[in-house]
Design a protein around this nucleic acid. Structure first.
Lengths: 234, 234
DNA sequence: ACCTGAACACCGTTCAAGT
DNA sequence: ACCTGAACACCGTTCAAGT
């Protein structure tokens, strides 16, 4: 073994992979707004300008991060390959989407980054292609498959926009002027009472995200199945 | 009439309302990234710092803009009042949501701003309250109503995240390396061929957003109706 | 080949000062 | 009461220069 040991190398050189991995670390720790070129460089023990040798710009970092997240989804669900025979398309689609969701839950900032891409990432395309393939082999025609992709939307990747949900870390402050709201929002108040009654533990974060996600997902999958069964058999 | 006409006033004074109206104008014209404090001030013929006399900061502008958009939705659908008797909850919900969508279509940057709010705007709360009220009066119990609000998510306000859709102005460039994609993405390619066959006019923007939005909305409404009918009658 | 210092053009925002 | 100039702390990025 010929190794040059002349003075221990202080750090291994940068690379696109290390930059992207660090970017995910920084976002995991401090959220997406913590991911700045200068902050990322500091996290790597390097100057901000050094990053530009390995990535074109910040957008390229976002692109690479999305690729990495989708790759993690691929590991989670065992690849995007479409099986030759699909007996239960609903089960297979649900398995993939809930797997994607598990990954997204580890990187809660990811939806915002994914949505911010103007051109669809090739890896995302491969993921969606897998979903579409499962549906086609499961009895969809292409037209219904197309509708299905749109109906799922971002839910295909395991997330959905919740208008009632605050950002992680910033809990909703419902208490504040609840007094005056009660008379103007009787239905909301009534709903909250029922929900809190069902689950008295939950005080502030009064919704079970996982349950709600599955509820909506099942509605969509059921609706698609009904329309699949209505297809003319050729 | 005693009016002081000593030298024509060059411009009417600023106000919170004028700032917010101008903010919407700027975003309508140049997108949300064009909405900067300096740019907004220039649009108003004023210095950037003057804005801070009327709004606390940029976040407050975003908050106000969301309020204004929801107010516009209110005008579009004739208010958020819940009728005492709801015969066809699906029709009423669909009417409100498609009205909201019409407004969002005029302000395509609005979804991003709405999603960026960490605390739910009071006006948004009123809008959602109206939807919930229609459902309750239409035969939902509070638990199903709660599920429904989550299942609709941002679709309640007339938009949904389309992973395949590029930002307005930046068309998807599918042509680029389509050659190599064909062999890896047979299902996507097959789907595109069928879709283009159905609608040969559409070359690049190959999806009818309105149709897809209604398709997904109907699936959700149908699913909710099925679950409503399954409720125990009390 | 890989990293850096200095500089640029842009942000949002504060604060004391103008009228 | 309403607006402004100067300044600050932060961005992403370019470019010539270092090793």
């Amino acid at each position: 073994m010929v190794t040059k040991t002349k003075s221990q190398p202080k750090r291994e050189p940068l690379s696109r992979e290390r930059v992207l991995a660090a970017a995910i670390e920084v976002a995991d720790e401090g959220g997406i707004e913590a991911l700045t070129m200068r902050g990322l460089a500091e996290h790597l023990g390097v100057e901000a300008m050094s990053l530009y040798y390995h990535v074109a710009n910040k957008e390229a970092i976002f692109d690479g991060v999305v690729d990495a997240i989708v790759a993690e989804i691929g590991e989670e669900i065992g690849g995007f390959e479409v099986p030759e025979k699909v007996d239960d398309w609903q089960a297979e689609i649900r398995r993939r989407i809930l797997g994607a969701r598990a990954v997204i839950m580890r990187h809660k900032w990811a939806p915002e980054v994914i949505e911010s891409r103007t051109i669809i990432a090739p890896t995302v395309m491969f993921y969606m292609h897998g979903l579409l393939g499962v549906m086609i082999e499961g009895g969809f025609d292409y037209d219904l498959g197309h509708h299905a992709m749109h109906a799922l939307g971002s839910r295909a990747l395991g997330f959905s926009q919740e208008l009632f949900e605050p950002e992680p870390g910033q809990e909703q402050e419902v208490e504040q002027d609840l007094e005056e709201l009660i008379e103007h929002l009787p239905y909301i108040v009534g709903m909250m009472e029922v929900i809190q009654h069902d689950d008295p533990e939950d005080t502030v974060g009064w919704c079970d995200d996982e349950t709600e996600f599955r509820f909506a997902l099942d509605i969509i999958l059921d609706g698609l199945e009904a329309r699949r069964q209505a297809l003319p058999t050729t």
